[in-house]
Simulated scan of single mutants.
Amino acid sequence: MTTQFAVTASSAADKAGDIAQVIASLPVSLHQAFAAADLVGIAGGDGWVDAAKHAIESGARGVLIVDPVAFDVVALIKQADAAGVPVVIDATWTHNPAVAASADAFVEHCDADGFIEARVNVPLGSDIERVLLNQLSLVRTVVSPISRLRFARKNSRGYDALADLVGGASASLSAILSSSGPVSATLRILQSETSVEVELPSPVSAAPGSVIVSGPEGATLLPTQWETAHRAAWRRLHGLVDAGELSRDLAGFARDVAAIRTAK
């Protein structure tokens, strides 16, 4: 039997992460609460770390952060681990089901000589640092954390950067800020005869992402599923709380923040 958890979220978190819609789509697992709740959704703007600490102190069994800004999370990691509370970061791309579907293929094709291309298209006016954090989260989840980052261009219209990954592979990262096209992300690894590419829609879209593995014998489209990234993030948090497990999202987030802070 599926355990049903009560959820509460700030209006800002609800707007940023479509939380009311997610709850409505998971009636067996989640239900709306207006006071104390098992799971708490928090917007990732200024003050999100303090809000998460307060939620844990108030008895939350699980916390989800929507699109957080860069911040020191060392104290929050210690508090969450001590309380046994999983903290899931609802990054823009990470929880799209196509990401999990592509992971094995990327691991199989990635080695020290591999080259990864990552590109995102986001609306004009987006917070550049948040855009980069979300892209680093995607690369880390699918391939490997980034150990060094160097910018060739960075301005209000986007950025281009080169990166070294833990394990030796290299990557190019780019972001285009424009209101002329749909929000999307692409991640591709290139080898001498093979490639793996994942294309992701906006996190509010339930349309499936695509994963294509190409080689000398042709291209294969891997199966994915219809689900928004936001919904998948909440399902993951529910599963962690139900199983009594913690999350390593904050540790990965801290690593991404460090890569940005030391970038040249």
Rank of each mutant, 00 (worst) to 15 (best):
A100R: 05
F71H: 08
I77M: 02
A118S: 14
G114N: 10
P86H: 07
V40M: 00
A36V: 06
I19F: 02
T141V: 00
D90V: 08
G125Y: 04
V122T: 12
S25M: 03
F106S: 15
K15W: 15
R140P: 00
S11D: 13
D14W: 15
A36M: 08
I116K: 15
A60V: 05
L76I: 00
D72R: 10
D111A: 01
E108P: 13
D46E: 03
G44I: 00
R119S: 08
A55G: 06
R119P: 04
A112S: 09
G41Q: 00
I89G: 10
Q21L: 07
V120H: 12
A83W: 12
G84F: 07
V99R: 07
A37N: 14
G47A: 06
A55L: 07
A98C: 02
T141G: 01
G62P: 04
A13H: 14
A101W: 00
P123E: 15
H31Q: 13
G47P: 07
G59W: 10
W93P: 12
V88F: 05
T92N: 15
R140T: 05
S10A: 08
S25L: 05
W93A: 06
I128R: 15
V66H: 00
T94Q: 11
A20F: 12
G44T: 02
H54N: 07
A80H: 08
D111R: 04
G62N: 08
V99T: 04
L26D: 05
A80M: 03
D67S: 02
C110L: 04
S29N: 10
P27C: 10
G41M: 00
P68E: 08
V49G: 03
D90M: 12
V88R: 10
A12N: 15
W93V: 02
V28A: 03
N134D: 06
R140H: 01
A75P: 01
D67T: 06
A101S: 03
S25E: 05
I19K: 06
V99L: 00
S137N: 14
V87H: 08
K78S: 10
A118F: 04
W48D: 13
G62M: 01
V73W: 02
V85I: 13
D90I: 11
A37D: 14
L133F: 14
Q32E: 10
A33H: 14
S126F: 15
A9D: 03
A101N: 03
R130T: 08
V88D: 11
S58V: 12
C110E: 01
A36T: 08
A83E: 13
G125C: 00
A75R: 02
V85R: 14
Q135Y: 03
V131C: 12
A91T: 09
D81S: 09
V107Q: 14
V107C: 10
